[in-house]
Structures are given as C-alpha cells and as structure tokens.
C-alpha cells in the first residue's frame, strides 16, 4: 500500500501556471482581450478548470460561435481534454520547459479527427471512472472497483474534481493495496507515450521471473531492447532504479495509470 504520504501530497499539490490567449482569428472586438492567467493542478483535466477562462473570452468572440465547443492548442497541437493536464505539459513541453505555459483558445474549427467531444463534465467523469476500472482490472482483476459502492466511486471523482486530497485518498488507498500472498499488483497500469502522443500499453508484471522487484531499467530493456530510452512523469526523469510497484503506488495519476513520456 502507498505509505510515503509526503510523496503523494507533493504529487497532488503539483501545479502549472497557464496563460490562455484567444486565437486572433476569433477576436471580433476592436479591443484585444487580456490573456487569462491561472494556476491549474497538474493532476486535473482541462474541462474542470476552464469555466472562468471561458467566460472571460466569450464576449470577444462572434456570437454565432458562442455555443460551440471550446478547445485548446499548444503550438498548433490540439490538446486532448481526457489526458491529465500535467501529463500534456510533460509530453509537449517536457524537454523544453516554459512557464507560464502559453495555450491558444478556440471556439471554431473543432479538430474532429484529433479530439473527442466533451459536451459536459459528466463525460469527463465517465471517462475517468472507466480508466480507473481498467487500471483495477490490471491490478486486481477488477475486484476492488466492483466491490466498492457507488458512493465510493463518487467520492473518488469529487475528491479529484474539488482538489480534496484526503477525500480522494480515503478511497484511492484501497485501489493501491496489494492482494493475495504476493506483495504487489498483478500488473502495473502504465502507458508509455511517444512524442506524437501515441502510446503503448502492455502487461507489465511488477516482479521479475526470479521474484525480485522489477525496476524501471528492466522495464526499459524489456520494451526497448535496442534503444535505451529515458522516461519522464510529473516533470521529472524517473531514476532507473525505481521499483515499478512503488512507482505505481505513488506516481500514478488519479485515474490509477502511470502516464510516462519517452524523452
């Protein structure tokens, strides 16, 4: 079970300064809108933190676009709302960090073939819960999520949505426990992303065949025997001697997956 509480807290408190700018083509007023600055939790999702920003820009755009779905890009790269914010930053900015992170806001020309639609926050919740369930299938054959009550599921989501660490971890700790005789998960929920945002997900056992703890170095040589890569998450390069089980318990995003970038 996760026990390095300071680490969990540190990860939870991670924030990014973001500067939102309205796409020049959208601006219908003579007066230019001020950029909108905000600190956002790394672990959250954009649809949960941009209500104020949207209101700020709405009066500058063409009224016929006001009901359109808003979307964001960084450097021309549309940002997927269903990935955690901190992960998106690591993916597109990790090798050349910049703060504040300057993003462009759009109300038209939705990139249908790249982004999923997000008409409301219920869609974010559905996506989030489904990802937690997938992770639990990998870790415990889905047994923890299926024995939880609906109110527990709600508490997880509300804890994340309202940035309440204790509320979230009171439930999430049960998802981070090991079951059975062996210490550790059945498999480690991990997605490893290339620069283009595609990822691989494989069955990764937290132990080697001799029963010893598998570390990041061994994972890399398993998946990339020819090309020793480096991995980054939460803005740091992961030390090669980190055990995967510890990594999963402490550095997973709230959706219970490790989202790591190749760098």
């Amino acid at each position: 079970m996760a026990n390095d509480r300071e680490v969990l807290r540190e990860i939870w408190d991670g924030k990014l300064p973001v500067c939102f700018q309205l796409d020049q083509e959208e601006i219908m007023e003579i007066q230019q809108p001020d950029p909108f600055y905000v600190m956002v939790p790394r672990l959250s999702y954009f649809p949960l933190v941009i209500d104020k920003m949207k209101r700020h820009f709405l009066r500058f755009i063409s009224q016929e676009n006001a009901d359109n779905e808003m979307w964001l890009d960084y450097n021309g790269q549309p940002l997927k709302w269903h990935y955690p914010i901190g992960f998106l930053y690591d993916l597109y900015c990790g090798s050349d960090p910049q703060t504040p992170w300057i993003l462009t806001v759009h109300f038209s020309k939705f990139p249908e073939n790249i982004l999923l639609h997000c008409p409301n926050k219920d869609i974010v919740e559905a996506h989030y819960m489904s990802t937690v369930k997938e992770a639990d299938v990998l870790k415990h054959r889905g047994q923890v999520m299926s024995t939880m009550q609906k109110k527990d599921h709600n508490q997880l989501w509300l804890g994340l949505q309202n940035d309440k660490f204790d509320q979230f971890w009171a439930i999430n700790r049960r998802l981070m426990e090991s079951h059975g005789e062996s210490e550790g998960f059945k498999n480690i929920p991990i997605r490893i992303y290339s620069e283009d945002g595609t990822y691989i997900q494989r069955l990764i056992n937290p132990k080697n065949s001799d029963g010893s703890r598998k570390v990041v170095q061994q994972l890399i040589s398993e998946l990339y025997p020819e090309n020793p890569v480096k991995l980054r998450t939460h803005g740091i390069n992961i030390p090669l001697d980190t055990p995967l089980q510890w990594l999963s318990e402490h550095m997973s995003y709230p959706d219970n997956f490790l989202h790591v970038c190749i760098c």
Binding site: H82, A126, H127, S130, K133, E134, V137, G142, S146
Partner: peptide, 8 residues
C-alpha cells in the same frame, strides 16, 4: 472490455 470498462 472484460464486461467491466468502456475504453475511450
């Protein structure tokens, strides 16, 4: 998948 979760 697995009669459990709806993949994105």
């Amino acid at each position: 998948v697995n009669q459990t979760f709806a993949p994105s």
